[in-house]
Design a protein around this nucleic acid. Structure first.
Length: 368
DNA sequence: AGACAGGCCTCTTTTACATCA
DNA sequence: GTTGATGTAAAAGAGGCCTGT
């Protein structure tokens, strides 16, 4: 059973006229990006010292070494720990949420407008993590203004840079208040730095959806390219595709289930109808002895037209056909006329010749 | 043949967000 | 308008299976 299913394609998120219009090059935004990045780097250094004067953000080696240390404990668990620890390592980096939350709040221009981007990128995209991911996966997670020139990328650069002053230029269209919500989450993250889940932005989701439409699985090259394009970790792209496939499968299962349910209902109704018809024929047989002289019949189904052909085994056979999908009205009409029992040759009634009188179907002649 | 890595699937957990009282 | 409870979608973790090397 093969059912078509259209998933995704959210008209609100996908750019209908230009599917990848948001990736269009925008020199102005590039300027913004480079500026933001520079400022963001500076900002990042400032945030590298926590209240205790300890270094929070250092170089990649620190992050990597600490993450590897976590891996050591997990490596005892099972033989596949290397792979999972690799997965965990990318996610175990200190979440950069504090960066976004420490933005100066006196700039009211982008207080609410940056929320979507903040949600999508800053929360998870620690620069150190980006560098780590780059080192691990060989994917250049673009922090360079020249790496990928697009407004889409520019947004990432701006928000990853963490400079709120530039948000207004690129954050139009985002709903407000999320920066504050993120701010409210910041204190929690300080205590329990468990995994921090990001919400992909609409643009990222739309882009991933477009990619998914083209191919629902990714080879490593495509994964890296997508990750680079969207400024995500390859693992995130991989997980997204996994979840997307799962969602598709779930939807397909629901559709299949619904289809089978309808099939079951149809067959039940058909079965009920046939039972009723059988009873009527039996009644007719009892009331009309002439019926008893009819030869035995064999039901066969034409594979091409799926019509049921009733053929007899004697030379006096009268081939009868009926479509399994014929509405009950025809059957009812036939049986109603049958119930009159006035015709001594009931098989000659139209019901038994649903095909053209002059040209019986091929299977009829073949069956006889 | 066995070890290993990598990918995918499935189930589960966790998180973010929306809705409602 | 605010707040807490609740439901839902989605990201991510974990483990198993399969395949290729």
């Amino acid at each position: 059973m093969e059912l078509g299913l259209s998933l995704g394609g959210d008209s609100t998120t996908a750019t209908a006229s230009r599917p990848f219009g948001f990736l269009a090059k925008n020199p102005d935004n590039n300027n913004i990006k480079s500026t933001a990045i520079n400022r963001g780097l500076e900002f990042r250094m400032a945030l590298g010292i926590n209240s205790d004067g300890k270094r929070i953000l250092q170089d990649q080696d620190r992050d990597k070494s600490s993450a590897d240390g976590d891996d050591e404990s997990e490596a005892v668990k099972r033989s596949k720990s290397t792979r999972n620890s690799h997965r965990n390592r990318t996610a175990s980096v200190d979440p950069p949420l504090q960066l976004a939350l420490s933005w100066p709040s006196d700039n009211g221009s982008s207080e609410g407008g940056s929320s979507g981007k903040v949600r999508g990128f800053d929360v998870n995209r620690l620069p150190a993590a980006a560098a780590e991911a780059e080192a691990e996966d060989g994917a250049a997670v673009s922090s360079s203004p020249n790496s990928v020139a697009s407004s889409f990328q520019v947004d990432f650069g701006v928000f990853r840079g963490g400079n709120k002053l530039d948000l207004e230029a690129v954050a139009a269209g985002n709903d407000g208040g999320e920066a504050e919500r993120a701010s409210s989450r910041a204190s929690d993250d300080d205590e329990n730095s468990s995994r921090k889940k990001l919400r992909l932005s609409k643009e990222q989701s739309a882009y991933l959806e477009e990619s998914f439409k083209e191919h629902n699985t990714l080879n490593p090259k495509q994964k890296l390219a997508l990750a680079k394009q969207l400024n995500l970790r390859p693992r995130q792209v991989e997980v997204w595709f996994q979840n997307r496939r799962a969602r598709t499968k779930l939807k397909q299962t629901e559709v299949d289930c619904e289809y089978l349910k309808r099939c079951c209902e149809t067959l039940t109704e058909e079965n009920r109808r046939l039972h009723k018809e059988l009873q009527e024929l039996r009644a007719l047989k009892n009331s009309n002895p002439f019926f008893m002289q009819l030869p035995a019949t064999t039901l066969t189904m034409c594979p091409s037209c799926e019509r049921v052909a009733t053929t007899t085994t004697t030379s006096t056979a009268v081939a009868t056909t009926t479509n399994s999908n014929v509405p009950n009205s025809s059957t009812t009409a036939a049986t109603d006329s049958t119930s009159k029992a006035a015709n001594p040759f009931p098989l000659s009634r139209p019901r038994f010749y649903p095909f053209s009188q002059s040209q019986p179907p091929p299977h009829q002649s073949a069956a006889s």
